[in-house]
Write a protein that binds this DNA or RNA. Structure first.
Lengths: 149, 149
DNA sequence: TTACCTGCAAAGAATTTGCAGGGCC
DNA sequence: GGCCCTGCAAATTCTTTGCAGGTAA
């Protein structure tokens, strides 16, 4: 394993462990395993997809544990939840990655990341003009990709 | 009823009727009633909230019909579906209203509309830079409102 | 020992589907 | 008359909860 990935992984594990400890929870290997699988796998996994991947490697893990762990991971901002149009909650590791938004092809369902600094800044101003202090945002762009146009 | 609202209502009804006719569906008063209730009520109703409102006025309507009608209304772009963080699908009449995005207070849950022309334009460019032609987008801003700051 | 952790199964919640009677064209 | 429409209830799907045995501290 690439040394940088390994360090990132250890780092996330430490952040997670510290978070659960501070919350008064006990140490759990299974939670860390679930974090690993989420971190190594493809992005935008739904809970049940993640559950399937976890089961491949750790066949005894129950799906309630996966749901409970995802909740904790979101609570400490290691991971974030996307609500897609299919109504499923999807998850991605957010910490240690640059912030990004998403662009989805309406033709083939292809899903990629996108970000524009100017838009980010304007969002802060827009919130401010309404009297809000912006904490975060979600932007989804829907269109047709080069192949589907 | 204000004459302008009345005309807008008739207009939406006509668009909807034309759409269902073109789709080979038959005329249905109930669908139009559901559209009216959605159009007159407060924004961002969930399917079950809409169902409750419809039932107040038309006690025999089944909730399956409300769900089916919402699907149709979204298909023809009269209404749009918002996926909020609570996992519920919420609906608002989009046609005949200016496009807008939403800003949500993380403190009290307050929900208002927001829009910025520059952001809109930059989104189109951002999509273009990825090779996509933008059809639509969803932007949600999360922050603290003046009262909750 | 006290609480948390976990898998399992059951419960819940939101939404969809099947069906049978009724209505539009 | 044929096909769509509708309410009802059952089925599905995703997610949460309760429980009983196990485990960290």
């Amino acid at each position: 394993m690439n040394i940088i990935i390994k360090m990132a992984k250890l780092n996330l594990q430490k952040i997670f462990t510290d978070f659960t400890a501070k919350k008064g929870l006990k140490h759990s290997d299974i939670r860390l395993k679930i974090l690993d699988v989420l971190n190594e796998g493809q992005k935008h996994l739904s809970a049940s997809e993640l559950f399937a991947k976890v089961r491949e490697r750790y066949p005894t893990v129950g799906q309630a544990t996966v749901y409970r762990t995802l909740k904790l991971l979101c609570e400490c901002d290691i991971c974030r939840e996307l609500r897609t149009e299919d109504g499923l909650a999807r998850y991605e590791v957010a910490m240690g990655h640059e912030h990004h938004d998403h662009i989805v092809c309406l033709g083939c369902g292809r899903f990629e990341e996108a970000v524009d600094e100017k838009i980010e800044k304007l969002q802060i101003q827009l919130a401010k003009s309404k009297g809000y202090s912006l904490k975060r945002h979600k932007l989804m762009l829907y269109g047709l990709c080069p192949k589907c146009k």
